[in-house]
């Protein structure tokens, strides 16, 4: 309740600012946005010239495959941020998404190893993922707990349940579906890469091509106005958390196929997922989270790690460069938005 009120309060100066925003400021924002994209392009150009084999089809498909898991998770996070508002302490966030993926992967791999078929196992993983998402939705929408806190508690529950289920061990898994995901290919593109392509197409179409997606932005941008316009804010916000759980389940199948097992430690992905979803805002005209922007930043993070590998730079640098890039991009973005943009 207080969260929505705060949002309404906070958006008032934004509107005044937007009204006062001169054409010059808009031009500045455009230059900055293009500048950020140009910086990305410059890094890519460097890799193209100096990293051997960077542009080979094999390598690029490899990057897309590696990005599939992060991408699917980042879509879930992006949806939650769109529907809950992008204020990072009061707005929408799902800290449980990576732990949820770990739990779904454990359920999926355990059921497979117990001899249940693909159909039942995948169904169970999706049910668990969406169940965890529904728990988040109940906590955030039903009980009014801050998303940051609610999903933090659920993170602990999901991570603990994964550990109890697997006893912190690797659970090997193999099945026809996993076989297809590992070695199947269509039109020369591997199944994992297809998974990311198809999932991206669906997400972009739903969020950016339908009235539903537009309403989701309305709910996140100004909940009071959305309610006044007759939208059911609780429904839309709940939907994003359940969708986030669904994304976690899909990602869990992909991660089990990639590793041929469910392994502990998937919670470490959380920060990269957050980084991808937040970094993606720089690709949108109004600096809001978009599915397309998230896809670009996921691919960028993937290409960055890959380029470093090809250049034989120690992988220890990757985190740091990723962190520095986030800071650079966000500093530029907040500069473009005006001095009070990030407050």
């Amino acid at each position: 309740m207080s969260a929505t009120t705060l949002h309404a309060d906070a958006s008032v100066p934004d509107e005044k600012q937007a009204a006062a925003k001169s054409a010059g400021r808009r031009f500045g924002a455009l230059v900055v946005r293009l500048g950020a994209i140009a910086a990305f392009a410059a890094i890519m150009a460097y890799f193209v010239i100096f990293a051997p084999g960077f542009t080979s089809t094999f390598n690029l498909i490899n990057v897309v495959e590696q990005s599939a898991i992060l991408g699917v998770l980042a879509y879930g996070m992006t949806a939650v941020i769109i529907g809950g508002g992008s204020d990072v302490t009061e707005g929408g966030i799902d800290l449980s998404i990576a732990a949820n993926m770990g739990l779904c992967a454990a359920v999926y791999a355990t059921l497979l190893s117990m001899g249940y078929g693909d159909f039942l196992s995948v169904l169970a993983a999706i049910a668990v993922g969406m169940g965890v998402g529904a728990l988040n939705a109940v906590a955030v929408v039903g009980l009014g707990i801050l998303p940051l806190l609610a999903t933090l508690a659920v993170l602990n529950v999901a991570a603990g349940m994964e550990l109890t289920l697997t006893q912190n061990t690797v659970v090997g898994a193999s099945s026809p579906l996993l076989g297809v995901l590992v070695s199947g290919s269509f039109l020369g593109i591997s199944a994992l890469a297809w998974a990311l392509i198809v999932f991206s197409a669906i997400m972009i179409a739903v969020i950016h091509g339908t009235a539903f997606g537009l309403r989701l932005y309305a709910v996140g941008g100004h909940p009071e106005a959305a309610r006044a316009a007759g939208l059911s804010v609780p429904f839309y916000v709940s939907f994003t958390y359940v969708l986030s759980g669904f994304c976690a389940a899909v990602a869990s199948v992909l991660t089990v196929s990639r590793l041929s097992a469910s392994t502990p430690g998937s919670g470490e992905l959380l920060l990269s997922v957050l980084a991808a979803a937040l970094l993606g805002t720089v690709f949108s005209r109004r600096f809001v989270p978009t599915m397309g922007g998230t896809l670009l930043s996921v691919l960028f993070i993937g290409l960055l790690a890959n380029g470093f590998q090809l250049l034989n730079v120690s992988s220890y640098w990757v985190n740091g460069v990723q962190g520095a890039l986030i800071l650079l991009v966000v500093a530029i973005t907040s500069f473009a938005r005006g001095s009070e943009g990030s407050r």
Binding site: V88, L271, L278, G320, G323, I326
Partner: peptide, 27 residues
């Protein structure tokens, strides 16, 4: 500096520092 001079929100600023700190330790 990141939060007050560069106007980065505390969440993102400290997330970036977290990544950089992890790399620093690994190196």
């Amino acid at each position: 500096i990141l939060i007050t001079r560069l106007n980065i929100s505390p969440f993102l600023a400290t997330l970036g520092v977290l990544f950089i700190g992890q790399s620093t330790q690994q190196l």
